[in-house]
């Protein structure tokens, strides 16, 4: 009996080590990031993985906005302790005053615009290699497997957290990123039953996660915090459910 528990402990320890080597999950002892608790259970070691690449996919402008909002909120939580964010995109799309609402100081973000895919990949890779940065957000359409592996290798050395937001990709091809997310907006929860638009609500789907359990949450952004809603029927059916009938 004792041998069995020892073995389980050993396996766990080894798994943690492997995760750390893969750039996923921090070596035990480091605290999880406060404020990201709702998501922690899906990840190996029950810690939201920083120092990894997270991939986001969206297909509609409104979903892209929701995804940007979610990324901003997560980035804001990670940047709490200070640091700098580099946001690399095609065009001027992000409206800096909107970032503040999600807890990210807009003047802590440096925006870089370039239309050329190659240049963008080069910049993202160079940025991910730079340990002085905390977060790098890259907006692009396509990301090949080889490219994503290069990015993942870069973060494993530097510990920078990367978010790749793919808008309207041709296919959701396999990439070497640690996770794949899909964020769609949900009808907002009214404030104190007042009419009008309430707090932002998202259907957060974690479609893929290395060594973790894919999951989905219905999350709203209230008072600069992620709040998970327990009562599912409180919301209207999610976009995904309505459009697939499932």
């Amino acid at each position: 009996m004792q041998a069995a528990t020892e073995k389980i402990a050993l396996a766990k320890e080894l798994q943690a080590k492997i995760n750390a080597m893969q750039g996923l999950g921090k070596p035990s002892g480091e605290p999880a990031i406060a404020g990201l608790a709702p998501f922690d259970n899906a990840f190996p070691g029950h810690v939201f993985p920083t120092g990894a690449i997270h991939e986001f996919v969206s297909y509609e402008p409104s979903h892209a906005a929701a995804t940007s909002g979610f990324i901003t909120a997560v980035a804001g939580k990670i940047l709490k302790e200070g640091g700098l964010c580099l946001w690399i995109g095609n065009e001027k799309k992000i409206f800096p005053p909107g970032l503040k609402h999600f807890g990210l100081e807009p003047d802590r973000v440096i925006f870089i615009q370039t239309l050329k895919q190659k240049e963008k990949l080069w910049i993202i890779e160079e940025a991910l290699k730079c340990e002085a940065l905390t977060i790098v957000v890259g907006e692009m359409k396509e990301l090949g497997f080889t490219e994503s592996r290069r990015l993942q290798l870069a973060v494993e050395h530097s510990g920078v957290t990367g978010f790749i937001h793919r808008f309207c990709p041709y296919s959701e091809n396999a990439v070497a990123c640690a996770t794949r997310w899909k964020i769609t907006p949900l009808a907002s929860i009214p404030n104190d039953d007042l009419p009008g638009v309430g707090n932002s609500c998202w259907d957060v789907q974690l479609l893929k996660v290395k060594n973790g359990r894919p999951a989905s949450w219905q999350i709203s952004w209230m008072d600069k915090q992620f709040v998970q809603s327990g009562q599912k029927n409180f919301f209207s059916p999610s976009f995904h459910e309505r459009h697939t009938g499932s």
Partner: peptide, 28 residues
């Protein structure tokens, strides 16, 4: 300050590649 230098150097490299106009930061 070490980190600042690193970021400044990264931005220099990026602007050498894309041109100075590509890098922006916004203030209220």
């Amino acid at each position: 300050s070490q980190n600042d230098t690193k970021i400044a150097e990264l931005l220099d490299r990026i602007s050498a590649k894309t041109g100075n106009h590509a890098i922006r930061r916004f203030l209220p």
